[in-house]
């Protein structure tokens, strides 16, 4: 379980997070929506301990990671898998090496088992033949899938996805969403997904939280969010669903 309590963060006097309260339950897929530049990535980086808040706490299974650093923080991070916004694949490594990397560096494992697990992970994301390619040689959609495979290969109990589908065409978008749902069913993990994809994310997430002006303005199941009376939520969802067209 992840509990975010009264989290605040400013950059150069600009308040990005202004008292975030949110609880993410074990094994649920929680989506965080909100407008671009609203601080979603910043919030996610607080959950992985990459940014320290000005105030507040982040409890991961009861441990406040805000107050941890070094070895102790790394100990908590062993539970994590992270899919970064752009994929953040290592340029100098091939697709295969990227996926193998966390396993090879973190876990004592013999070569044969490593190889098998990497192949299985590549197969899960339908990239079996692409192992020898470098990140610069593959498309944006493939990069996201490699990032997904890399994040999941250590079988983390908590996975963070920062816009795993933004900017992709509807077919690839749906295939990545299906991949997330399938692997979630198969391996089971607590997932936090930042997303712009409305309405598609409603079919993926168990619950949805909306971030606006640095606070969580509404949390609920997809149906609750769809039927919300909160004007901010309504406007965001409608605005995303029907692109306004001005001649």
């Amino acid at each position: 379980m992840i509990e975010i309590i009264d989290l605040e963060k400013s950059f150069d006097g600009q308040k990005v997070l202004n008292g975030i309260d949110l609880t993410i339950l074990d094994n649920e897929l929680m989506a965080i929506i909100g407008k671009s530049g609203g601080g979603k990535s910043v919030l996610l980086k607080h959950l992985t301990g990459l940014i320290k808040p000005d105030k507040g706490s982040v409890l991961v299974d009861g441990v406040d990671i805000v107050r941890l650093s070094g070895r102790e923080l790394d100990g908590i991070r062993e539970k994590f898998g992270v899919v970064f916004q752009g994929g953040a694949l290592f340029d100098s490594l091939t697709v295969y090496e990227n996926v193998a990397f966390p396993l090879k560096e973190k876990v004592k494992i013999d070569r044969k088992e490593l190889h098998e697990r990497v192949l299985r992970a590549l197969e899960d994301v339908e990239l079996l033949g692409m192992g020898k390619k470098y990140p610069a040689e593959i498309s944006g959609g493939m990069k996201r899938r490699v990032a997904l495979a890399r994040a999941l290969i250590t079988e983390p109990s908590i996975v963070f996805f920062d816009e795993p589908t933004t900017g992709l065409d509807p077919i690839i978008l749906n295939s990545i969403h299906r991949l997330i749902v399938d692997t979630h069913k198969k391996y089971g993990f607590t997932g936090v997904i930042i997303s712009h994809d409305i309405p598609e994310i409603f079919d993926v997430a168990d619950r949805i939280a909306m971030l606006h002006n640095g606070v969580i303005v509404e949390t609920g199941t997809p149906d609750e969010i769809k039927n919300s009376f909160n004007p901010i939520v309504r406007q965001f969802i409608i605005g995303m669903e029907v692109p306004s067209f001005k001649p």
């Binding site: 990459l50 991070r77 992270v82 953040a88």
Partner: peptide, 17 residues
Amino acid sequence: GIMRISEQIDALTAMAL
């Protein structure tokens, strides 16, 4: 620098490396 802005350094840190 490119590794920094493309979050590759963050990725290493998040892997506890």
